[in-house]
Nucleic acid binder design. Structure first.
Lengths: 169, 169
DNA sequence: TCAAACTTTCAATAAATATTGAAAGTTTTT
DNA sequence: AAAAACTTTCAATATTTATTGAAAGTTTGA
């Protein structure tokens, strides 16, 4: 396989995965395109490469910037915006986990806190069952939360070394 | 808050989360409904409770069975199918991780293996950059894979004890 | 063997989500 | 100050995904 075809497949695969995890295809593809590019890219180049409209490119670039995965860069003497993608796969993974944690896990934890207030003194079996469920989900969510938090603080090799040690000995 | 309202909110919240992670809303809601129910449920009851059609209920129940999160149960002397949801939150999390791993991560690993064959002997900087990227993604995917595998084998408290110890001392 | 009770399927339809593209906005140059 | 070069916005539209509901299929009991 040659480089051009390889890049194409990488971009497609990344788009497909994104879709399955609730991330829009174009956003994932733009991101993939940036990962495979050694250079920075202009909106024009992205539009061209992915055959998408200016509006779409612009919108998704903005989202990627919001996610902290892409930054604008300026070329000396040029008016046009260029975009640079984070290339470090580990940093990308951390960043995505972090963003999704705050945007999705935190609100859930809040709802669960509320649900803990359901008839707290009831002796009814139904209520107890519900309370146990809420509690268990809350615990699990908290564990995930702490795991992610831990990952943020950890350096790549340090973290995986520790984790893998647990399972290999 | 009373029990009925609490259950309602739990079902809604679970549906919303599902949606954000590429799981269809109804499937997540049916599952949530089963978690909050002490008893088994018939298709009729699910249709009623979530205001959905028979076809929709049936289809998503089948998917949940495929995912291993729901089982059919038969009541003695009754013709109708009843459905029982897995209640153990930890088991649910493991199961979902496992399914998504095989369905989504494994195919990605395969694509990455292919992409490693891109001009393997080239000295070009571009090719080297691409090869490094593919390699890094592959490593990350493998780490995730091994982490999930490890989680499967682990018992709940054992696993979290180990993980949390890493971050707390 | 028939019909009642139930489940499954799937083409049609609806709902949600993503994309376009032209108009409006902004900044820089002349 | 006006035009040129560029970016952003957003209503209209297209695409994708989920849902309906009626028809077909299956199982059980009389």
């Amino acid at each position: 396989m040659n480089l051009v075809e390889g890049k194409r497949q990488f971009v497609q695969a990344w788009g497909a995965i994104g879709t399955q995890w609730g991330i829009n295809k174009t956003m994932a593809q733009i991101h993939a395109l940036m990962m495979v590019s050694t250079d920075v890219l202009s909106t024009e180049e992205i539009m061209e490469e992915l055959s998408i409209s200016r509006g779409n490119a612009n919108m998704n670039l903005r989202d990627l910037i919001d996610w902290g995965l892409v930054t604008k860069v300026f070329k000396h003497g040029e008016r046009r915006d260029y975009f640079q993608g984070e290339k470090d796969v580990w940093k990308i993974a951390k960043q995505v986990a972090k963003i999704r944690k705050t945007r999705e896990l935190d609100p859930v934890l809040k709802v669960l806190e509320e649900l803990k207030k359901v008839e707290p003194n009831s002796k009814s079996e139904d209520v107890k069952h519900f309370q146990k469920l809420v509690n268990d989900v809350h615990k699990l969510a908290n564990n995930v939360d702490r795991l992610i938090e831990g990952v943020f603080k950890a350096e790549e090799s340090w973290f995986w070394d520790k984790i893998l040690k647990i399972f290999t000995k």
